[in-house]
Amino acid sequence: MNTLEETELCFPQLLNSSCRKTMRPHSVSLIIYVILSAISLITMILNLLVIISISHYKQLHTPTNLLLLSLAVSDFFVGLLMFFQIMLIDGCWFLSDLMCVLYFLLDYVITSASIGTMVLISVDRYVAICDPLHYPSKVTPKTANICISMCWIGSILFQCLLLKDNLQQPGSFNTCFGECVVVVSYVGGIADVLLSFIGPVTVIVVLYLRVFVVAVSQARAMRSHVATVTIQGSVSVSAKKSELKAFKSVSVVIVVFLICLCPYFCVTVTGQDALLNSSSLVSVVCLFYFNSCLNPLIYALFYPWFRKSMKLIITLQILKPGSCEASIL
């Protein structure tokens, strides 16, 4: 009986001071580990391909692609963090208390930076569709880089402030050895919900509703005038078609993001995570993480440049001199 009891502890040598493991059949645990490890590895590889593609090829240095680059960076780190999530599945944390706080800090920073990047992508598409004549002057690569930098710096500063007490005294909120817990103040929790979820999602939805109305009207206008356009007009129509196609592609990314994000935030901000069993909670968290694996697949489906750049990277043609000047579009 004592042996059975010891096997349920994270640190059997500590007896009553140790946290208890979440017991599952060995086959179930093995399946979970294999699936999450595969998703984590695929997520990192695919997003690394996106990062290399946009960073290396100068032709891809457009404002929209730079925003996708920022999203790919956050998605890459999500894949990396999934290895730590795998460690927590059994309810045991075997690293130091400081590493636990840093894990949550990185997790929160990546989440808020991803959401901030989605807001920037929504603004980018809003200006491109609703004010196309001024888009090249208003939205430049320099402007995009500044906004991305501010988004990441703001996320880091805000989350460090939110977890200040945990960073000063790592592990002070743990109730047993092997636990990984961080506590956020009531005011900080409300601020986090408003700034990291409700506010950004509201902005994204409002902008996309507006853009959707304009995009539909533009599509109808193009269909009604397609037979009578002049050569100059056809260039304009072609440009509009290109913007609408980009809008559709990015829309899929944002819709999938919201579908994966909302269950995660609804569970965590309402405190329902304490009421759910571990399997349900893991499912919600994994759905949120799985979004980072889906984004590159969406790029591969909608963006020919990503498929072409992947081929060049895999075949090592990217190592040739002057490859950064290659025509990708």
Rank of each mutant, 00 (worst) to 15 (best):
L163A: 03
S17A: 15
R20L: 09
V282F: 13
V139W: 12
P63N: 09
Y108K: 04
P263L: 05
T140W: 06
L312M: 10
R307I: 06
Q168S: 10
V101Q: 03
T315G: 00
I148F: 03
S74H: 06
M87D: 13
G79L: 00
D90C: 06
L281C: 01
I54E: 04
K138N: 11
R20Q: 13
T111G: 03
L66W: 04
I32D: 04
L98R: 02
L95P: 02
L162Y: 06
T315R: 07
I328F: 03
H134F: 12
H61K: 12
L120A: 04
N47E: 05
S40L: 01
S279E: 15
L244Y: 06
F94E: 14
M23S: 15
L261S: 06
V184M: 03
S137K: 14
K58Q: 08
L106A: 12
V201I: 11
Q317E: 14
D107C: 09
S96D: 11
S238C: 01
N145G: 12
Q169H: 07
V139C: 07
L95Y: 14
L120M: 02
K21F: 04
N2P: 08
L167S: 02
R210S: 12
Y33F: 08
L167D: 05
A215N: 11
F288T: 01
T230R: 07
C324I: 09
S224F: 08
L133W: 07
M150G: 02
C130A: 10
N65K: 09
S249L: 08
C324S: 15
S122D: 05
R125M: 01
Q218P: 04
D90Q: 13
S17T: 13
G171T: 06
S122T: 07
R20K: 14
C180V: 12
M99Y: 07
C10W: 09
V139R: 06
C262T: 14
L9M: 07
V235N: 10
N291K: 07
S155W: 09
S114L: 03
L68D: 00
L319H: 11
L275D: 14
K308A: 09
K164I: 02
I110Q: 09
S224R: 10
S327K: 15
G79C: 02
S70H: 02
V182L: 06
R220G: 11
M44W: 00
M44F: 01
G189Y: 05
A239E: 12
L68A: 02
V28M: 11
I298N: 04
K248E: 07
R223G: 00
F306M: 03
S283H: 02
